[in-house]
């Protein structure tokens, strides 16, 4: 009898199960609550202009989080991305300053290649030499940051040295929406396809969730790791160019400490540091939550001295709420299966 009833309500229940299956439900819920709270305090929060600003300022974080997600899925971590952003941004800016007529798209490519080479070095150290990711990337973070200071000799590249075309890379807009947002959306789609529908994408999950069985089933672990870190490096290099173009200035300490923000976005979004799990939607939500915090805290008109405290508190609250909701979801899952 029960099964019949269940069948009758099937479409409705399916929707509901799908909803409950979404493991980052708590996070979504939290973000909505947060938005309502901020909107009450400052009505200019949910306006078209502010939402576009928020999206533009969060795009770079989203792109980097995608890369960090696949690194974390393979049980790795990359602490060097802030330094790679600075290095590729500085070199590209110097290239633009020396040849103002250069095609901006070529600059994007140039930065991405620099980043990919940095990433490949990391990948080789981890996959071939067998260093632990945290140590290899911590060391290379120092090296890349030092190199940036060396090539720049302490100088900055300023906006008057950059061509209009280069600044328009991240400043211009298409259909009224900033290029950065388009780029971020593009990468989200690519990653969605890559992770879910390609063999390599699935191999990344396999390597992360169980390295031994992945190796036994013939997956070339070293190659996957090398690929993952190269992608991360390439994305960082790309973001370095975008960063410099967005702020129209390149300095040696660009994006210092940004790696922690990116890692936070991923882990908030449910990517496990122990590897194997992580969904694009969750990471997107994590990055959006951090983007909202950065955008909303100045709007709240609280004392600037409270901003840090509130930010830390909200991040902790978000992960805890998410954890509790997840437990509920898992429990209903189990009950349903048992029933």
């Amino acid at each position: 009898m029960e099964t019949k009833e269940a069948h009758a309500e099937n479409p409705k229940k399916n929707m509901l199960t799908l909803f409950y299956q979404f493991r980052e439900l708590g996070l979504l819920f939290f973000i909505i609550l947060l938005c309502i709270g901020v909107q009450i305090r400052n009505p200019s929060f949910l306006t078209g202009e502010n939402i576009l600003d928020l999206a533009t300022n969060t795009s770079i974080l989203v792109i980097l989080s995608l890369g960090m997600m696949i690194v974390l899925i393979t049980r790795g971590i990359d602490l060097s991305i802030g330094a790679v952003i600075a290095l590729s941004g500085m070199l590209t800016a110097q290239l633009v300053a020396a040849n103002p007529s250069i095609n901006p798209l070529l600059c994007l490519l140039f930065g991405t290649v620099i980043g990919a080479v940095c990433g490949m070095v990391i990948g080789l150290l981890i996959a071939r030499v067998g260093l632990l990711p945290i140590i290899a990337t911590l060391a290379l973070m120092n090296i890349f940051r030092g190199l940036t200071f060396l090539v720049s000799d302490g100088e900055w590249v300023s906006s008057y040295q950059m061509s209009d075309g280069f600044v328009a890379l991240a400043g211009g807009s298409f259909l009224g929406i900033n290029h950065l947002i388009w780029i971020a959306v593009f990468f989200c789609l690519v990653f969605f396809y890559f992770l879910n529908y390609t063999r390599t994408g699935r191999q990344i999950y396999a390597v992360g969730s169980n390295p031994q069985s992945a190796a036994v089933s013939g997956i070339k672990q070293g190659r996957v790791l090398l690929l993952v870190y190269t992608i991360m490096g390439g994305l960082s290099g790309l973001c370095g160019v975008l960063w410099v173009s967005k702020f129209a200035s390149a300095q040696g300490d660009t994006a210092s400490g940004y790696e922690l923000t990116v890692i936070a976005a991923c882990i908030l979004g449910g990517v496990s540091i122990a590897g194997g799990s992580g969904k694009l939607a969750g990471v997107l939500l994590g990055a959006i939550l951090l983007g909202i915090l950065n955008n909303a805290l100045p709007l709240l008109n609280v004392s600037p001295f409270w901003q840090n405290g509130i930010q830390g508190f909200i991040i902790l609250l978000a992960v805890i709420v998410n954890a509790i909701v997840k437990r509920r979801v898992d429990r209903t899952h189990l009950l349903r299966r048992a029933g």
Binding site: N42, T47, N50, D53, N57, N294, P298, L299
Partner: peptide, 11 residues
């Protein structure tokens, strides 16, 4: 600095 400036303009 960018976020703070944008917030100033909106608030």
């Amino acid at each position: 600095s960018v976020s703070e400036t944008e917030a100033l303009l909106k608030s």
